[in-house]
Amino acid sequence: MTHPEDRQQQAAISRLLLYYLNAPIAEGCRLRGVLPASDAVRIAIRAGDGESSETFLYEIPHDTVAPAHIPGILRTVLSGTQLYSSDDISEVLGMTLIRLHPEEITPAPEPEEDQALSVLRALSDPGDDENPFLIGFLMKDDSLMRLYVQHPDCSGLIGVDIHLTDTLTALTASLPSLIEETERHQPAPDDPHCDLIVDLTDC
C-alpha cells in the first residue's frame, strides 16, 4: 500500500468497522481483522463457532465503493449463498481470500443500531470533554431516537427527536444550528432529563 489515498481509505474503513469487534456483522459472522492490500482492503470474517468455524478474507477494491457502504456489502455477502469465479478465490495467511465486485452487490440495509451508532459517533467529539455537545441518548420505538444535547449558549439540556434513516449525514451536520431555531423549541413536561424538546423527525 504505497499511495496516501489508499492509507487514508484504509484508516477510514478500520475506524468504521471497529464496532463489529463486539457485535456480529451478520448472523454467525464476526470481524477478525482489517488488512491493507494494494488498491484494496481485505476484511477478515470468522463464520461459525468453535472448531467448525472458518475465517475468510473479503477483498474490496478502494475505487469501487465508499467506506460507509462496506458493512452493507458484507451483510449481503454473508447473509446468503454467493457464487464466485475461481479467478476470485485464492488463499492468504491460511484463509480463503475472496475478491468481491461491489458494483454487482446491493448493500443490505443498515440495522437500526448501526444507524444510531453512526449518529452518536458523529456527535461525540472526544476532544471537547470540557464542553461536550452530546450528553446522552435514548432509543425509542419506530426507529426513533432522542438525543440529549447542550448548546454552548444554553444552560439547560435539549432533547432532540430524530428518525433513524439511511440519510442522516446532513441532519447530523446541521443539528447544532437546527436546535438554535427557537420556533422549534417545545416544553418537555414528560421528560425530566431535559429542559426543552426539539422535534426533527420531519427533517
Rank of each mutant, 00 (worst) to 15 (best):
residue 37 A to M: 11
residue 174 S to G: 10
residue 73 I to S: 01
residue 185 H to P: 13
residue 108 A to D: 02
residue 24 P to L: 01
residue 184 R to P: 10
residue 81 T to N: 12
residue 174 S to I: 07
residue 111 P to L: 06
residue 150 Q to V: 10
residue 3 H to P: 01
residue 41 V to H: 04
residue 167 T to E: 15
residue 153 D to S: 12
residue 69 H to N: 13
residue 112 E to C: 15
residue 45 I to S: 00
residue 90 S to W: 04
residue 137 F to G: 01
residue 93 L to M: 11
residue 86 S to H: 14
residue 125 D to T: 06
residue 47 A to Q: 14
residue 126 P to C: 08
residue 135 I to Y: 07
residue 58 Y to S: 05
residue 2 T to E: 08
residue 167 T to H: 11
residue 79 S to R: 04
residue 156 G to I: 02
residue 138 L to F: 09
residue 146 R to S: 08
residue 103 E to L: 12
residue 59 E to C: 15
residue 45 I to G: 00
residue 108 A to C: 09
residue 98 I to M: 11
residue 36 P to Y: 05
residue 23 A to V: 14
residue 111 P to H: 06
residue 161 D to N: 12
residue 85 S to R: 04
residue 127 G to T: 11
residue 38 S to K: 14
residue 41 V to F: 06
residue 67 P to D: 07
residue 78 L to Y: 01
residue 189 P to V: 03
residue 100 L to R: 03
residue 5 E to I: 13
residue 116 A to N: 04
residue 33 G to C: 00
residue 86 S to D: 12
residue 81 T to Y: 12
residue 124 S to V: 07
residue 202 D to P: 00
residue 140 K to V: 08
residue 59 E to T: 15
residue 49 D to Y: 12
residue 157 L to T: 14
residue 178 L to V: 14
residue 42 R to S: 05
residue 57 L to E: 14
residue 58 Y to C: 09
residue 175 L to N: 05
residue 50 G to L: 00
residue 95 M to Y: 13
residue 140 K to P: 01
residue 27 E to L: 01
residue 47 A to Y: 15
residue 142 D to H: 12
residue 19 Y to E: 06
residue 68 A to Y: 09
residue 116 A to H: 07
residue 63 D to M: 14
residue 109 P to M: 07
residue 52 S to H: 03
residue 108 A to R: 07
residue 7 R to S: 13
residue 125 D to I: 10
residue 64 T to E: 15
residue 116 A to P: 08
residue 56 F to K: 04
residue 165 T to L: 09
residue 197 I to C: 05
residue 118 S to Y: 12
residue 105 I to H: 04
residue 60 I to H: 06
residue 57 L to W: 03
residue 187 P to E: 11
residue 148 Y to K: 07
residue 110 E to R: 12
residue 72 G to H: 01
residue 46 R to F: 00
residue 14 S to F: 06
residue 18 L to P: 10
residue 199 D to E: 08
residue 68 A to N: 14
residue 122 A to Q: 03
residue 106 T to W: 10
residue 153 D to E: 11
residue 85 S to T: 10
residue 145 M to A: 10
residue 158 I to N: 02
residue 170 A to C: 05
residue 37 A to N: 03
residue 75 R to S: 09
residue 33 G to R: 02
residue 71 P to E: 08
residue 134 L to Y: 07
residue 71 P to W: 02
residue 146 R to H: 07
residue 193 H to I: 13
residue 181 E to K: 14
residue 177 S to Y: 07
residue 128 D to T: 15
residue 2 T to S: 13
residue 42 R to Y: 01
residue 47 A to E: 11
residue 63 D to I: 10
residue 14 S to D: 14
residue 156 G to A: 08
residue 110 E to A: 08
residue 73 I to P: 03
residue 130 E to L: 13
residue 107 P to D: 09
residue 58 Y to R: 07
residue 19 Y to M: 06
residue 137 F to Y: 14
